[in-house]
Design a protein around this nucleic acid. Sequence first.
DNA 1: CGATTGACGACTGTCGACAGCTTGGTATCG
DNA 2: CGATACCAAGCTGTCGACAGTCGTCAATCG
Lengths: 227, 227
Amino acid sequence: MTASNAFGSGMVIQQRNLVEQVADFLTQAIISQHYAPGERLSEVQLARDLGVSRAPVREAARLLESRGLLVSQPRRGFFVRALDAAELNDVFDLRLCLERHALARLVENYDAEKEQALRRQVELMCEVALNDSDSRKIEEDLVFHRMLIAFAGNRRLLRTFDDITHELRLCMALIGKTHADPDSIATCHWALLDALASGDREQCREAVDYHIGVARDYVVQGIGEAS
Amino acid sequence: MTASNAFGSGMVIQQRNLVEQVADFLTQAIISQHYAPGERLSEVQLARDLGVSRAPVREAARLLESRGLLVSQPRRGFFVRALDAAELNDVFDLRLCLERHALARLVENYDAEKEQALRRQVELMCEVALNDSDSRKIEEDLVFHRMLIAFAGNRRLLRTFDDITHELRLCMALIGKTHADPDSIATCHWALLDALASGDREQCREAVDYHIGVARDYVVQGIGEAS
DNA sequence: CGATTGACGACTGTCGACAGCTTGGTATCG
DNA sequence: CGATACCAAGCTGTCGACAGTCGTCAATCG
């Protein structure tokens, strides 16, 4: 991946932490099922494969552990997190909790600017649903929901959402398929925006409950089939 | 703390990670204001002082960073987290979000056993309010609220609560004083239990909102005075 | 034949060392 | 005298190495 900057094109500042690079690599490898759930990761082997020492590998693994993508056992090492249906249910229950709260806050200070930004995102999601890859669809969906939380104005809430986002990516990738139909995506998300525009708190809550409920049922069912 | 086992008493297997020990030390040092908010921590100096190498120190620091007690700047090191009033408000807003949800779940499957356990904890808090240190009072209060979340049955929710718990300890220790009056503690927490016993969801929500609101106002006000 | 024990191999936890960066102070120049 | 450039000290990021521990598998004993 190259980038353009003030010094011309292709001049990439290769100064990002090794830790971040390793973390990105590991995240991709886990999300893309390159490692199986429950698989053990060897620090030495990873370090050899990536051409770095064990220190950054270890630090990146701890980072992914805090994000819920890996679990560690003392003196045994790191293992790819294997989410079962119950844990998945808990994650979606927490997500419901967060998004309910965010929309209750957001509806209090909703304005045209926020509405326009959200509408643009939904339109982008519809385009993406037609042409792009599954992972791209998932990312844009998460961007939409992240915008909802961000607009609510609580940065700590946003951080918690980002935390569970990694787990969501994990299990969404796990079930593989996504509802690609752009019509369903549009109606599903516009219902949320309509509820917000109405300014009615109860209507927002119902919309969120329905939205997250559908997503949860879809994923939990997918996990049930997969395992 | 010593433990009894099959070989008699006091025979403790001292094999805890250095990382955990350093993390505990750092946590205590930060909570007890031994380090000032915003202060820079040197890995080398900490390693020297504790008689260990930099690796466990660094790992423990990263752990505390994920818990929100430290923040890191690349190539600059770790700094003690300095919470301002806005961040504090966000933390309490998130806590409100979590406890509301937990009580809504808990009221659905509330039983005598859970009620008894919670009542015992409130009684313990009243005793502690008379005799013990501030930090002990804070701990027992957190235990009570942790029980509420745990009884709700969502482990992911509990993990998130544990996360913000560290930040709560930080700011509670920051303002120093606690409402020591056992009467107010009793009435304040029994109102929650009464709402749970009533089985009415709306009543629970009001009780939680009031409870967390009081705590938030108290702490935010304390921070305002301190800074 | 099944269970226990012992050794082997691999790995994690921890350590000390080096290079590059950041920082604060000092010297130089306008 | 003020501002800029430079320099030294300390620190973080990264590395390779060693010791203790865990899992595995074969050999031994009942």
